[in-house]
Simulated scan of single mutants.
Amino acid sequence: MGTTSTAAAGSYHHGNLRSALLERAEQTLELDGVEGLSLRQLARDLGVSHGAPGRHFRDKQALLDELAYDGFVAMNARLEVAAHAVGTLRERLDAVARAYVAFAVEHRTLLSVMYTTKHAPDASERLRLISHASMDTTTGLLRQGQAEGVLSAGDPERLALVAFAAVHGVATLASNALLDGVPVEAATSATVAVLWAGMTAPPATT
């Protein structure tokens, strides 16, 4: 994205510079990584004064924090849509997994920033709360399955964590082109199939 025109830059003074900074910052993240991101460069890209971004973000870390928060909002929205789509519980779990992997592939660097920022010692409570929403969505689906007798008994939060670990593994491999030619959706569906088989298996008898 090149430098904006004078007219476009002037419009930022009417309240949308913050959103423009976040949009451009995410683009920069995916192209150049965290190291390539700076408030000064964003100002140049958007054609505003060097001090203008400081009115919205005190420093680069504050910008990254907001990117992380917005990233979780966007990701959680996708997972919520998938979780409440028409279909069986099995189909909706598969849809949630595919939505997560798709987001991870599309926003590889942003996702890394989201989790790194979330786990930072000084992470805000606001960020911690929004970051848990996706796990709550999965846990809710598993609780529903247990209540309906579709899934075996067990701690739904622990099961959701295991499911997340497996699907996140696929997302990581896909984001780094390490699936050895296996289509992303096929790898995701196979992973959910294994998880589903484990969660629906009857307890072992002795």
Rank of each mutant, 00 (worst) to 15 (best):
M1Y: 02
T3K: 15
S5Q: 08
A7C: 05
H13S: 11
N16D: 14
N16F: 08
E23P: 01
L31P: 01
L31W: 02
D32A: 13
G33Q: 03
V34T: 13
V34Q: 13
L37F: 02
S38T: 14
L39W: 00
Q41W: 12
Q41G: 09
A43S: 10
A43F: 02
G47W: 04
S49I: 09
H50F: 12
G54T: 06
R55C: 06
R55G: 13
R58P: 00
D59M: 07
K60W: 00
L63A: 11
L64V: 11
L64Q: 08
D65Y: 03
D70A: 13
F72N: 13
M75V: 09
R78N: 06
E80T: 15
E80H: 10
E80Y: 03
A85M: 04
V86W: 03
E91G: 15
A95S: 12
V96K: 05
V96W: 02
A97S: 14
F103D: 11
V105A: 06
E106W: 00
L110D: 03
L110Q: 11
L111G: 05
M114H: 06
Y115G: 05
T116I: 11
T117K: 07
A120Q: 04
D122C: 03
D122L: 11
A123P: 00
L127Y: 00
R128P: 01
L129M: 12
T138I: 15
G140A: 05
G140T: 02
R143P: 01
Q146P: 02
S152A: 15
G154S: 08
D155E: 06
D155F: 08
R158Q: 13
L159M: 14
V162T: 07
A163G: 14
F164S: 15
A174Y: 01
N176F: 04
A177N: 12
D180R: 10
D180G: 05
D180N: 12
T188N: 09
T188C: 14
S189C: 10
A190V: 05
W196G: 09
M199V: 04
A204E: 14
